[in-house]
Amino acid sequence: MFRLVSEISPNFLIQGFGLHQDENEIYIGKVGGQEVQLIPSIDRLHLDNLQADDIIFSVGFAEADNHFRAGDVLMTGSDDLLDRAFRAMDEMEQRGVVVSLTPAQDSKHLYVSKEHMDPFVQEWKSRKFSFLCLWMVDPIDSEGQAKLVAILRKVIIKD
């Protein structure tokens, strides 16, 4: 199952993936035959309830700085999902940048300040969950939200 978490209003994900509420008032649906569940906040993603083959997606925003410009998609995640995301972005001619959540000694690694996300990402890595975090550099308008949905859809469906 694909678990979606959004740090911005999730309405664009609900509409973009055609999700509906189940009896527990959780948004669920299918994308390309794959089950998708929207988790209302990162704090409500209980890792103990996840299966080994579950995949975590987190979407949100990042602030522009001298390395990133408005509309860039910053990402971190598992290698296989990063590869799929890059392929999706290449098809869309969307600029994507792999970033680190911790300041690196190596100047070749770009850092994005997302302190609240770092503990979650470190936990996902240590527990060997497949995950992909996508952050669009502000401002995120409806076109940017549609791009995030399109990238996620392509990653979920695979080729």
Rank of each mutant, 00 (worst) to 15 (best):
I8Y: 11
P10T: 13
N11A: 07
F12G: 00
L13Y: 03
G16T: 11
G16C: 07
G16K: 05
G18S: 06
L19V: 02
E23C: 11
E25C: 05
E25Q: 15
E25S: 05
E25F: 14
I26K: 00
I28R: 02
I28H: 01
G33I: 12
E35G: 09
Q37G: 01
L38R: 08
R44N: 09
R44L: 15
R44P: 02
L45H: 08
L50G: 06
A52K: 14
D53F: 00
D54A: 04
I55L: 03
F57K: 01
F57V: 03
G60I: 11
A64I: 12
M75V: 11
T76I: 13
T76R: 01
T76Q: 02
T76M: 06
D83C: 11
A85Q: 08
M92P: 12
Q94N: 02
V97C: 07
V98F: 08
S100W: 07
Y111N: 06
D118C: 02
P119D: 10
K125P: 09
K128T: 06
W135I: 06
I140R: 11
S142N: 13
E143P: 01
E143V: 05
G144M: 14
A146H: 09
K147V: 11
A150H: 10
A150V: 10
I151G: 03
R153W: 01
R153M: 01
R153F: 04
I157L: 08
K158I: 06
D159Q: 09
D159R: 08
